[in-house]
Amino acid sequence: MEKLFVILVEDQPEVLRAIASDLREFEDDFIIEECQSAAEAWDVMKRAEERGGYVVLIVSDHVMPNQTGVEFLTRVHLDGRFRHTRKILLTGLATHQDTIRAINQAAIDQYIEKPWKRDDLVAKARRLITEYILENGFDYQSYQGVLDSAVLLQRMRNNP
């Protein structure tokens, strides 16, 4: 089976651990990579891609030293290798300007405010992962346990 990656980027270790444990239910089917900086995340993604893996979803904090989440996600968006990667910006403090840039330049799929609710984060991640799986022609049946049934159903209705 193909290797599918979920990348988490957050500079504060305790917060990073909290996000990771909230998304633990995806760990059986996806490789969840915790990263403390945008640079580290980029290295992990490049390596995953070089080894034939797929980066399905990124959940990134915004306020981080060196490179902000929006800068990082913009870089991801502009890179052809990660054209289909879904992106969630998870932030407690973004200016109006940052938010506009997140949408226009980084083309994020979801914006989640801190403090986040576990169920909300999981539901949004699940929906984006499902979209990715379907869009890229992976065998959704092998991931059925973690996919969003509403999205699946909708898809089946549209393509009987």
Partner: peptide, 25 residues
Amino acid sequence: GWESDTRAIRARRDHLEGKFDLPLK
């Protein structure tokens, strides 16, 4: 605590995975 350096964890994880033939998780 846990090792908080995620790069170190990743390297160690890959090492353990290879050496003891463990599931990644």
